[in-house]
Amino acid sequence: MGLVIALVLTVLFLVGGLLFGRMNDRKHLASIARREERYRDIRLDNRKRVDMPEDVEVCALVIGQYVSASDYFKAFATRLRALVGGEMNSMITLMERARREAVLRMVESALKHGATEVWNIRFETSNISQMNGKRGAAQVEIIAYGTAIKRKAVA
């Protein structure tokens, strides 16, 4: 009896993870694409030295952060994939989505400074699932940071 319940619950979680996970993914990706289009004019650069430093008016550190959770289905797919090795497509989309969102948040905070450019962009990823004290589905924090630059208006 207990075994049946456990089995039913597992299948329920897997299907739920698959359905809701897919739905979340799609909604979020659409929102990301929309905002990326809107902020297309913001120049992103990860070189250290700012071009034309003479006409810089404002410079400020900007950060974008996103903590991402894997869903139950993805966690299951990951464990299966780990048996045979190879590329983990489900996790690739997860990380890519998180990183794009982090960049967008960084850009949004740059816009608050009135900036038109972000330089010296750096990314950092850290696994914080150990914060739970147990091993489970991935919880990954991604941050993107850089220096927002606002130029002096041309006279």
Partner: peptide, 10 residues
């Protein structure tokens, strides 16, 4: 973690 997505609290 069951459905995935952003962990807003974190």
């Amino acid at each position: 973690n069951l459905v995935g997505g952003e962990l807003k609290g974190y």
